[in-house]
Nucleic acid binder design. Sequence first.
DNA 1: GGTTTAAATGCAATTTATTGCGCTTTATGC
DNA 2: GCATAAAGCGCAATAAATTGCATTTAAACC
Lengths: 105, 105
Amino acid sequence: MNLEAMSDKAILGELGGRLQRERLNRNLTQADLALKSGVSIRSIQYLETGHPCTLASLIKILRALGNLTSLDAFFPEPGMSPVQLARLKGRERQRASGSKRDEKG
Amino acid sequence: MNLEAMSDKAILGELGGRLQRERLNRNLTQADLALKSGVSIRSIQYLETGHPCTLASLIKILRALGNLTSLDAFFPEPGMSPVQLARLKGRERQRASGSKRDEKG
DNA sequence: GGTTTAAATGCAATTTATTGCGCTTTATGC
DNA sequence: GCATAAAGCGCAATAAATTGCATTTAAACC
């Protein structure tokens, strides 16, 4: 399943389906998960059926499932590519800059 | 950095900071990212400063950064643990069930 | 097949996020 | 230093998500 090829909406649906499977694999009811996560049943139902939700809700649910560290995947913790390290001699960049037209088409 | 040990709010702040670093590493302005992702500048500012946001917004931004597949980390795509495979002989479970008191304290 | 209970659905109320706009602050390049 | 443009911030309006409740559907277990 290639997320890159899917629409935003389709991705939400896919993630919802996966959440549901994960919950069922653990044999939890929606009510169980609601209680553990602190999110209402109704929201969990929405989530599982692919409705848009809040990142806050997702975090609560991931915590309840013990899968919080999956959030690490978003943005690589260390950061700072070698290229960058070379470009800025010392200080860390606090703003984007540099004629703009250089790097972009 | 251990996300597990952080509050929901702290996690949002951490992720916001990482987004900002990632953006700067690519030397993109907030306006650039806003344009590429289809999310308003103001929302990006909120995001980077740890304000709660929508999963939809996050998806748009991840797509703009070419990091959509990081969403795969949430819930393992395949699923279905060996244990489960053993428990249900054939059909796939569609509801949680089973005396409840068995598995939980 | 009947019973139990998990899950789906519709709706209204409330809360929360998103956006645009104008203004201020400040890093960066010259 | 100074000019430029990126980023920060407050506010109000709009849009969107969350919630609770009541009802209906249907899996799971006997």
